[in-house]
Amino acid sequence: MIRNRTASRQTRALLNALQRHPAEWRHGYDLAKEAGLSSGTLYPILIRLHERGFLDAEWRAPAVAGRPPRHVYRLSRAGLSYALSLDQACVSPPVGRRGEALA
């Protein structure tokens, strides 16, 4: 079973990078550069997001002949709403125990 944990800072950075151009397919290297992540952090997050259905992934033909096809990513519909919900959680005012806004 996949736990619905709070997103880490790195996951948020990656979601932000993906969210910036939601319709665009992105390469791992571009995403790592934009989100400021190393490949060692990037891939486990990509795998997790994909397993939770938040990420679409597909293979693209190489730009240069002789190179292997490249894996590209973009947020799925569910991933986009997840990213938006995280954004809202960040900007919404703190909430008291009974659900009323404290601010």
Partner: peptide
């Protein structure tokens, strides 16, 4: 465990040979 992702990492690696 993740054959597709293994191939994805290799492909990215091949793409970055000169980067």
């Amino acid at each position: 465990r993740h054959p597709e992702w293994a191939a994805a990492m290799l492909a990215e690696q091949a793409e970055l040979q000169t980067a």
